[in-house]
Design a binder for these strands. Structure first.
Lengths: 262, 262
DNA sequence: CGGGGGATTGACGTAGCTCAACCCGAGTGG
DNA sequence: CCACTCGGGTTGAGCTACGTCAATCCCCCG
């Protein structure tokens, strides 16, 4: 699963983030700087250095469903999200699509310049409108060699993603219910906001999206959600989902579903 | 799957490597140096610098089934394999075990010092006897900051592993036959040697091991192997397996098993 | 020669994928 | 303002790939 994927990035305790549903065009210089401050890559830099970093980035707006990076694109750019949600999708030759991750403000994606990969093999698509910062491989490469702390931060990040991938790999063997529970919990932990009725996922995902994330089919997702709904654990709506009983999902995500006592 | 996992590490085209079945104790200083030369991390260093690196490592012998790193061990050491095979296993709380990788000469494992993880969450166990080089987190950290090229190499490596993990993640949805085929092909590509009867896997793995690698059960592995054996695609034996028809497995690994013509 | 890890096979049950309707609410264009 | 449409959600029925349980056999090693 995704847990801890970029735990270091989840410096955005949901609520405390500016109007997330801000108009796509909202991307003031101040906000841009603020976001860069919070990106772990640049955490250790001085204000002056940060300014240098800031200069290397250009802002770009996006609308929901925009494809920011197409599979196979040359790996020339690095994106940092200022606002909005982006999904990373990996498509197989057989047409099957697996969603690797959902990203939010402060997360970055695109070819990591140092990673030596010539082309992106994942697709990045906007889930909501928003704003991203863009820079080129060369510019970012320059930053990295200039500031060693950045290199270390990048490494830590990638290794974190690796661990989370291993985690998910292991979890792939678990029953669907467990995987879906994990998926929901992870999403809500990273992006969700608490309301009086429950905790949201913090991203407008369809059940099909959830299926792609959990590695199953939308029908199965629906059925599972249906039973959970009946039990009052979740509330579902169009592109919306509320978690009412996190504890129950937690139980499911970890150990096999036993229903009755042992 | 594993493909390309450490493609950069597969600088050991199977045969050209010294007696792989050398006595565990074989770990001459020359061999140790040679191995370090080939480890991508240190590829860009001058002979003098390499000597420095060499000094930082200590040699250690291992026997089959030795546990080199136990899950939960503090992440204090980095290992580089000189000879022999090592498996990386990730165990779940529920007892299930997933094999993440099989490693050979030139591969390294253990806590990557820079990765900021406090403890190893994977177990490393020797599959065969052999020899490894060991160093501490601090010593390796020093090397890294001293030689930037090492940092970059580490990053490239980790990112390669990440990509391969994503690949496997995606493949997890494929039918068992495909996964097993991939597993065998990957192993044989990395370690296998060609004989007149076929290509070996290059590591003495039980069908249970293969199951852990492919994410299935040993019974299923056996059944699949049985049908392949009947078709003459593979030859199986105790802790041994020969691939006779790589092309057929290749087909299976990619696209759905159709049996009859379309 | 006995013991045990590994390999093999059969029987059986089921989670979850596939195919196939059908419903509903939100845009949208006339 | 209404009809149309389409993405998203919901449900049912059937089928099968695989996991599980359970024997049995075989070879290697002490």
């Amino acid at each position: 699963m995704d847990e801890g994927s970029h735990k270091n990035l989840s410096l955005f305790p949901a609520g405390q983030w500016p109007p997330d549903d801000l108009t796509p065009q909202q991307c003031s210089p101040e906000l841009r700087r603020h976001v860069l401050t919070l990106v772990p890559y640049f955490q250790a830099l001085s204000p002056a250095e940060l300014e240098e970093v800031h200069a290397a980035f250009a802002a770009r707006h996006m609308l929901a469903t925009d494809t920011l990076v197409a599979a196979g694109d040359p790996a020339e750019t690095l994106y940092v999200i200022v606002s909005g949600r982006v999904k990373l999708v990996k498509g197989g030759p057989d047409g099957s699509e697996l969603m690797l991750d959902v990203l939010g403000p402060g997360d970055y994606f695109g070819a990591l310049p140092l990673l030596g990969q010539a082309a992106n093999e994942q697709r990045a698509e906007a889930i909501t409108g928003g704003c991203v910062l863009v820079t080129t491989t060369e510019a970012f490469g320059a930053l990295v060699t200039r500031f060693p702390s950045v290199a270390v931060a990048v490494l830590e990040d990638v290794s974190g993603r690796l661990r989370s991938a291993h985690e998910r790999l292991h979890e792939a063997a678990a029953p669907v219910e467990a995987r879906l529970a994990s998926t929901l919990l992870t999403l809500s932990a990273r992006f969700g906001v608490d309301s009086d009725e429950g905790r949201t996922l913090g991203a407008p995902l369809s059940q099909e999206d959830l299926a792609a994330l959990a590695g199953t089919t939308l029908e199965t997702v629906n059925r599972v959600l249906a039973t959970w709904r009946k039990r009052g654990w979740v509330t579902t709506g169009r592109l919306k989902l509320l978690i009412n009983a996190p504890a129950e999902l937690e139980k499911l995500s970890g150990r096999r579903h036993t229903d009755q006592s042992p």
